[in-house]
Computed example of a mutant assay.
Amino acid sequence: MKTASAVHILVKHQKLAEEIIQQLNKGARFDTLAKKYSSCPSAKSGGHLGEFKRGQMVPQFDKVCFSGELIVPHLVKTKFGWHVVKVLYRT
């Protein structure tokens, strides 16, 4: 079974998610932004979700984690809101 590891920042609005991606692209630290903006409990750990198996996350999130480019911030909309997702690695 394939696994992936990712960090994410969950926000309510697309505009904020896009601004966060711009800050990341300018060199801002992911964990700092996660602690500041994310509404997910993972914010406390800098947005770290740890390692998870394919199918454990909601479909849109899962798709990016198992097919998106590594280490680049991705914008993903789910029923929870807007996610800025960075896939750290896949097995």
Rank of each mutant, 00 (worst) to 15 (best):
H74P: 09
G55N: 08
S38F: 00
K36S: 02
V84A: 02
K44E: 15
D62I: 03
V64P: 06
K44A: 15
G50Q: 08
I20F: 09
K26H: 15
Q14L: 10
H74R: 03
G68S: 12
K2V: 13
K36W: 08
A43S: 15
K36R: 13
L75F: 03
L70C: 13
K15V: 13
H48Q: 15
W82T: 00
K77P: 04
F30D: 04
F52P: 00
M57V: 03
Q56D: 12
K2W: 11
D31Q: 14
S45C: 10
Y89F: 13
L33D: 07
G46W: 02
H83L: 07
Y37A: 02
V7M: 08
M1E: 09
W82I: 00
D31E: 14
K35L: 09
F80M: 07
D62T: 03
K79A: 10
C40K: 06
V85C: 01
V64W: 01
A34R: 01
T78N: 08
V87H: 05
L75H: 04
P73K: 03
V85Y: 01
K53T: 07
K63G: 00
H13R: 15
T78P: 03
Q56M: 07
S45D: 12
H13M: 12
R90F: 09
G50W: 05
E51T: 14
V84Y: 04
K26T: 10
L75A: 10
S67L: 13
H48Y: 14
L88C: 01
F30E: 06
T32G: 01
Y37F: 15
I20S: 11
L49T: 00
F61N: 00
G81N: 12
K12C: 08
L33Y: 04
A43G: 11
G81V: 10
I9Y: 00
F61E: 03
V76S: 04
P73T: 03
V58I: 06
K79M: 04
G55W: 04
S45A: 15
Q60G: 04
G46P: 12
L24I: 09
F61D: 00
H74S: 06
R54S: 10
L88V: 10
Q14M: 12
L16N: 06
Y37D: 02
L70D: 12
I20M: 05
H13C: 05
V11G: 07
K86M: 11
P59Q: 05
D31S: 15
H8C: 01
Q14R: 15
A34G: 04
P73L: 07
K79L: 11
H8G: 08
K35V: 09
A34H: 01
N25P: 01
E51H: 06
K35A: 14
A17Y: 07
Q60K: 09
M57P: 01
L16V: 03
Q22G: 06
A43W: 04
L24P: 10
Q14N: 11
K86W: 01
D62K: 01
Y89D: 14
F80R: 04
K26S: 14
N25I: 00
S39P: 01
C65P: 08
Q14V: 03
H74Q: 05
I71K: 14
K79R: 12
V64R: 02
P73N: 11
L24Q: 04
K15L: 13
A4T: 07
S42P: 05
K53A: 13
F52V: 07
Y89R: 14
